[in-house]
Amino acid sequence: MMKTQPSKASIRLERKHPLAIRWMHWVNFPLIFLMIWSGLLIYWNDSDNAYHHPHAVYRVGIGGVTLVRLFPAWFWKAIHAPFHVTQGLGIHFFFMWFFALNGIAYVLFLAFSGEWRFLVPEKGSLRDAIQVTLTDLHLRKEVPPQTKYNGAQRFAYTGVILMGLGMLVSGLAIYKPTQAHWLTALLGGYEMARWEHFWLAMGFVAFFLVHVTQVVLAGWNNFRSMVSGREIRATNEPSLEAERRSW
């Protein structure tokens, strides 16, 4: 089909996201949702008795001053958390395997396909990321040239993979703090591991909010490419396929 693409076209279809990446990306979305939701159902069990034994792990504060303990009662009610601990445990310890396997498969695919080169920050990515952020904040007009991802995206997407790894590691440290006590100790102990696990989950929520906002702003062509794999690009734009061939 592409063979019939006329040379005089001003646009072309670019293979942006490989099929495997698209599948793993979209499978990950409900999995993360399930993990965070079920995690909250489990966590409710500790917050519930805060009146009696204020828990130290999920408080926000400095030194002895506590600003807030997560979460307020209305939030728990809104997500129907009260008394669903066993549902949370069941879901969490079932879907954790799929989350882990999907993540491992994703990293392996990146490694063997070479696609990691699009994703991992490179020399100049930091400067690029700062400029992109300034542009997004309307403090700067033009963004630097990019192929698949700009510097900010490289940092964000690599960071979120590391966060996923952090979730698995801190999760194991909480799950088996006796059998894998060396790991728990490495993370600063049981309570610290729980703190890390929780705030990484909050980090995922933050990533999700920014990510969705950016996708909405980037428009349909960009979003569609995460489903169909193809993006319409101007013929004079840098080519991803050419870059892939250069690896």
């Binding site: 072309r12 279809l13 630097p144 040239p145 734009e237 080519s239 991803l240 050419a242 870059e243």
Partner: peptide
């Protein structure tokens, strides 16, 4: 099709024109 990156792509294109060998990548998709 430029989507949210319309501005970006234009900028990118102009730079490519200015420095044809910059990325060392030929045009084909």
């Amino acid at each position: 099709s430029g989507g949210g990156t319309a501005g970006k792509s234009e900028a990118a294109a102009s730079i490519v024109e200015e420095q044809p060998g910059a990325s060392g990548i030929p045009a084909p998709a």
